[in-house]
């Protein structure tokens, strides 16, 4: 990775797309404090990141739920580490259980749930900490197509109720355009930023938010236009590397 520099504003949803091997996951792990850059720095606010912390919770592609903890205990995990009082913890947990549609499953273990449900639990676990940045590493990559669409709609709904600063890694261009305020398009070897595509102005102008379903948004000419634009950016470099 080389000369990658961008800023995520507060309450902004930024998606990073790029071919595999461009370093987008490494980028997210650096933001999480799990990996460190050889040069340069990652900052949250004014503070330089020197390790993982609950102000930058991560939703992993593999869900990464604790199999020995119930749904409620998984969601409460970060709060417990933080030392949140029992009563406050229960309140927050039941809030997110309701928000993610997990009522009745509080005492279930992760292996008893479907993939989509497990990822809801993982999202709730990260949201419950109210992190200053929420990091999502291809969170829907392991789900089947239908579940994936459902979760994308869910995330849009969640962001409207509870807007947070999100850094979202994906290799799906549609997903990025549908979810994000801005899309960072990366190139491979060296991993560089090709372009940062602004989605919010188009979304506002064309009234995407009025659409209830993802397919209605994807039908809009403005959506198709943006998607094609990003695809071309990605294909350009693909062609270049094939030579």
């Amino acid at each position: 990775m080389d000369e990658v520099s961008f800023v995520v504003a507060e309450r902004e949803f930024v998606a990073i797309v790029g071919p595999s091997g461009c370093g987008k996951t490494t980028l997210l792990r650096m933001a999480a404090g799990l990996d460190f850059p050889t040069g340069g720095a990652v900052r949250v606010g004014d503070r330089q990141i020197d390790g993982p912390g609950s102000d930058r919770a991560v939703v992993f592609q593999q869900f990464a739920l604790f199999p020995w903890k119930t749904v409620a205990d998984n969601i409460a995990f970060g709060l417990k580490c933080r030392g949140t009082a029992e009563s406050a913890r229960q309140e927050i947990v039941s809030h997110y259980v309701a928000l993610m549609g997990l009522q009745g499953y509080e005492r279930a273990f992760p292996h008893q749930l479907s993939g989509g449900m497990q990822q809801r639990v993982a999202i709730a676990r990260s949201y419950a900490l109210e992190p200053s940045v929420l990091l999502m590493d291809e969170p829907f990559g392991a789900l089947d197509a239908q579940t994936r669409v459902g979760m994308q709609e869910e995330l849009v709904r969640l962001s409207r109720i509870n807007p947070r600063t999100v850094l979202f890694i994906t290799h799906s261009v549609e997903e990025a355009v549908y979810l994000a305020d801005r899309v960072v398009v990366m190139t491979r070897r060296p991993g560089r930023i090709r372009e940062i595509v602004e989605v919010t102005p188009v979304r506002r102008r064309e009234g995407w938010d009025a659409c209830e379903r993802i397919e209605d948004v994807m039908d809009q000419e403005s959506f198709v236009h943006l998607r094609t634009h990003i695809w071309k950016l990605l294909r350009e470099q693909h062609g270049a590397s094939a030579h």
Binding site: S54, V58, F60, A64, F77, G78, C81
Partner: peptide, 22 residues
């Protein structure tokens, strides 16, 4: 599974909590 340890750390677990909880 290293991803479970990573998950614990990014949700604020200390080294001791990683050991006892994960």
């Amino acid at each position: 599974d290293p991803v479970l340890i990573a998950a614990a750390r990014v949700h604020g677990a200390s080294a001791r909590q990683v050991l006892s909880q994960v």
